[in-house]
Design a protein around this nucleic acid. Structure first.
Length: 935
DNA sequence: GCAAGGTC
């Protein structure tokens, strides 16, 4: 059997299709991995890398005393499977194989992925021959050729890839750990460092600095408006930019009618049809359609998976000769008939070419016809873009006619340029670039025209713009940072680490602080040059003029030197970062003491804005807890009234929640509770706010004397005011108990949210669990609860409420639970049931039961039943059990009826006892007689 | 818990 291993499932499927004699391989699933069988061959797809590098055992703990971040540099490196099912399947199939062909992508990483598969094959089968098929596109022609002329795995090329992996791991992991620990950050807040991400972040930080340091310089532009045959046109002064206003003004005053045409230049310009799409080119074009880099890649991936376009991750901008361009045109003609026919009729000699050729995949092009109805709106826009780009690369260049006039007005020289599309060319089918026609009237040299207007504009030089995602990706590509598949992910990583934010990209304080620390102490990792060096070394490894070990060890040496410096400065680095990031949490000045107000989080989940002068100043403002998102300062918005930065809560996968000004928010969220206090009026609220008191809670915490002086109250008034606040707090506490209870007890339904039910209860006057526990079932109908739910709500409330009462009088929770379990859920159940029965049912011994019953009775003003010792109780039980034909289960019934020994049996009324216990009167009479005799 | 690189 011949085993064929491709880089991914789809590739395996298509390769099998091209190689099979019938054209229809048999698809099977083995442990959820697809395999394709045909002609005694099996094709199987990997999922890219199926193993990953990691450190050997013993380096898991970040804060280990012995295995510090530095020790990672020389730690042993292992490779461990990440796709266990695929690895197992390869082993299983290898055992039966008599030939294995590695058919991974034709690039360095593909060679490494292939070598990984080779190692797995070898583990299971030492002898089977393994060869390598190389192809640049999965077309019938290339695949057949590759399998007809198989080659060998290039182990040197794979080793080059391994060197890259090991260097990235060692640098990334050791520096990430070091800087995170120095800045005391863990969990989700770690500070990551890497060969690609750190230089990328540095680019964004550098740009931000340039913008910050930019000093705008004013300049002046002068132009005139003239006309011919009522058609106006504009001309600019040939001096261009005037740096001095006086010069511009003197040129303006020198400008006089008539405007004379001194020169006319006509020409033409070729407007080249665009090159085929590689990944970067595609992302840039898609961003003009409003797609972010990661969205663009996701949509393209989806189109690829459905067979509409070719593989979207490619560095190639030159169509390979094997590409069946006519075939593709025929296919897309189904969806773009007119455009395709035009292209076929006007096709250029050879398709356009870009600057980059590579062996991995062809440029992105359509592979199948889609109709708008097959795709969602966004996918269709992208598909159309890719089809039109493909058509454009086969279309003739466009041509523009250009026209330039030189004009003289009173000795001042002006110029006007125009252009007109002479031949549309590729623009017929590719309407995405917005070059505009600029039409000028037809003038001849020597012609004199009127001066309609003059325009003197003051302008300013502009700072460079922040990077957009697509611009950054282009820049990364230029510097060799990342790959076609990872560049957009790197940006995502910087955002999720909170190093950068917004679009265009802006660094945060954390991003800047980390970059500056690294630039100071580990410059190498912040520069694109590191990637270049690694590339050079990889090239040498590939040519076997350097060994992998040599390259990795050289890199380790450099990293060790860096750590000499880092470890010396660990404390300073940590403090620098922590100081800088603290700044990001300051929202403004404390209205009480004018210190800084800062966003803080307690050890639990609570977040608030508090004064940095605490405990001397206790001013603080509540924020929603972390579960709603992490509170961060909104740099762009400041409250007009309180002069504080707005705050927003950010949470992965959710839109930011704009809290607005934290003080306004605090006032807003406390006003309702304040208004529950009878003595609160708008005037009182005004006085409170003046003294920075905003909530009922704050009133309850203030000393009476302070309330009196701040609010201008008498001591008695202040005392009452505080008491009232405490009352409201208690009321609120009970309400929140009810809310919590409702959430726990009743499942939410459409139109009946938890808060609707709670608020409904409040409006019925049911504001605590006690009231709910004795509510009428029917009165809850208005809350859209069915009978069963209303009953449940009341019953559960009773349980909780009564538990509270039991607890209050001093019955321990363990006993209460036993009573509840036995079905005694209220104080009345205890006071009206015989202690013997209570004890029997609950399993609590009689002394204890008696104590509990006495407590309840005392509290209700009832005389407690006579006491009974455990010994007496047990003796009575033995007596009853000794009766002839007395059965165990009768005990329960007797206890229930208050019969617990011979004495009480003899005293009991036989008829009543028979009725309660359901035991026949005759039997009871027998028992009574026997008891009498044995007394 | 860390990188960058594949792929989903």
């Amino acid at each position: 059997m011949h085993l064929i291993i491709a880089e991914k499932n789809i590739a395996a499927q298509r390769i099998a299709g091209f190689l099979s004699s019938s054209g229809k391989p048999k698809t099977e699933k083995d442990n959820n991995v697809s395999i394709y069988r045909f002609d005694d061959k099996v094709a199987l797809g990997l999922r890219g890398h199926v193993v990953e590098v990691d450190f050997e055992e013993g380096y898991k703990n970040w804060r280990s005393e012995t295995h510090t971040p530095r020790t990672l540099i020389d730690a042993g490196i292992i490779r461990k499977p990440t796709e266990k099912k695929i690895v197992a399947l390869i082993k299983k199939l290898s055992k039966k194989a008599d030939l294995v062909t590695i058919a991974t992508d034709y690039d360095r990483e593909g060679e490494l992925i292939g070598k990984e598969a080779y190692e797995i094959v070898r583990e299971a089968n030492k002898k089977v021959p393994v060869n390598r098929a190389r192809f640049s596109a999965i077309t019938k022609q290339e695949i057949s050729a590759a399998f007809d002329n198989p080659a060998e795995i290039d182990f040197d090329l794979a080793a080059a890839g391994e060197a890259r992996q090991e260097i990235d791991l060692v640098w990334g992991a050791s520096l990430t750990r070091f800087i995170s620990i120095a800045a005391k950050r863990g969990g989700k807040n770690i500070l990551s460092v890497g060969r690609v991400q750190s230089p990328t972040l540095a680019m964004i930080v550098d740009r931000e600095k340039e913008i910050g340091e930019f000093v705008p310089v004013p300049y002046w532009m002068l132009s005139i408006i003239s006309e011919k045959d009522k058609e106006q046109f504009e001309a600019r002064h040939t001096h261009g930019r005037f740096d001095l206003k006086e010069e511009a003004e003197s040129a303006l005053s020198g400008t006089k009618e008539p405007v004379e045409v001194t020169e006319k230049k006509e020409g033409s310009r070729t407007d080249k049809a665009p090159a085929p799409f590689d990944t970067t080119g595609y992302i840039v074009a898609a961003s003009r359609l409003g797609l972010s880099a990661s969205n663009a890649m996701r949509v393209a991936e989806d189109l690829y998976m459905n067979g509409y376009i070719s593989y979207p991750r490619t560095d190639n901008t030159v169509y390979p000769d094997s590409l069946d361009i006519k075939g593709i045109l025929n296919e897309i003609k189904k969806s773009f008939r007119r455009d395709t026919e035009w292209v076929i009729a006007n096709i250029r000699d050879t398709p356009t070419k870009g600057k980059k050729t590579s062996t991995d995949h062809p440029p992105i092009h359509p592979t199948g016809a889609a109709k708008p109805a097959d795709l969602d709106e966004k996918s269709w826009k992208v598909y159309e873009l890719i089809v039109r780009r493909f058509l454009a690369t086969l279309s003739p260049d466009a041509r523009w006619k250009t026209l330039k006039y030189l004009l003289n007005a009173g000795g001042e020289e002006y110029t006007s340029t125009g252009q007109r599309l002479e031949y549309e060319g590729y623009r017929m089918v590719y309407p995405y670039s917005q070059a505009k026609e600029q039409v000028l009237p037809d003038l001849s040299e020597g012609e004199k025209l009127p001066l309609v207007d003059t325009v003197l504009e003051e302008k300013e030089t502009q700072p460079p713009p922040r990077y957009s995602q697509s611009k950054l990706i282009q820049q990364m590509e230029e510097l060799g940072l990342g790959t076609k598949s990872t560049r957009h992910e790197v940006i995502g990583k910087l955002i999720s680490r909170r190093y950068v934010e917004d679009n265009p990209l802006k660094p945060t304080q954390v991003g800047m602080a980390v970059t500056e620390s690294l630039e100071k102490h580990a410059t190498l990792i912040t520069k694109p040059d590191m990637t270049k060096t690694i590339e050079d070394h990889m090239e040498e490894i590939k040519r076997s003029s350097r060994s992998k070990e040599e390259a990795v060890n050289e890199s380790r040496g450099m990293l060790n030197q860096i750590f000499d410096d880092l470890e010396k400065n660990e404390e300073a680095i940590g403090e620098e970062i922590m100081d800088r990031t603290a700044e990001e949490r300051i929202v403004g000045k404390c209205p009480v003491c004018n210190s800084n107000l800062m966003i803080r989080t307690t050890k639990g989940m609570a977040q608030f804005v508090g004064c940095t002068n605490y405990p001397d100043c206790s001013f603080n403002l509540n924020l929603p807890s972390v579960q709603w998102g992490k509170a961060i300062r909104d740099d762009d918005n400041i409250c007009d009234q309180h002069n504080l930065h707005h705050v927003k809560l950010i949470r992965a996968g959710a839109r930011p929640w704009e809290i607005g000004c934290p003080l306004c928010n605090h006032i807003r969220s406390n006003i309702e509770a304040l208004e529950m206090m009878d003595s609160v009026s708008p005037e009182i609220i005004r006085r409170m706010h003046e003294n920075h008191i905003y909530s009922v809670f704050e009133i309850s915490k203030l000393p009476v004397a302070e309330i009196a002086s701040k609010m201008n109250f008498s001591d008695k008034q202040a005392f009452e005011f505080k008491k009232e606040a405490e009352g409201v707090l208690e009321e609120l506490r009970k309400r929140s108990e009810v809310k919590k209870f409702v959430r726990k007890t009743i499942p939410p339904k459409k139109g009946r949210s938890h808060s609707k039910v709670s608020n409904g209860l409040f409006s019925l006057g049911i504001t605590d669990l006690g009231r709910l526990s004795c509510a009428n079932k029917d009165s809850l109908k208005s809350l859209k609860l069915n009978d069963e739910e209303a009953e449940k709500l009341i019953f559960e409330a009773k349980l909780i409420h009564n538990k509270g009462i039991f607890k209050e009088v001093g019955i321990p929770a363990i006993s209460v639970n036993k009573y509840f379990k036995a079905g005694f859920i209220g104080p009345n159940d205890l006071s009206t049931t015989h202690p013997a029965y209570l004890s029997y049912k609950s399993g609590i011994n009689i002394d204890t039961v008696h104590k509990h019953v006495s407590i309840i009775c005392e509290n209700n003003g009832i005389a407690p039943p006579a006491g009974m010792s455990r010994k007496t109780f047990e003796k009575g039980r033995t007596e009853l059990m000794s009766l002839k034909s007395f059965e165990e289960e009768m005990l329960e019934k007797m206890y229930y009826a208050g019969v617990l020994n011979f004495k009480t049996l003899i005293e009991a009324d036989a008829d009543r006892l028979a009725k309660i216990t359901g035991i026949t009167r005759k039997k009871i009479m027998d028992f009574k007689k026997e008891a009498e005799n044995n007394k």
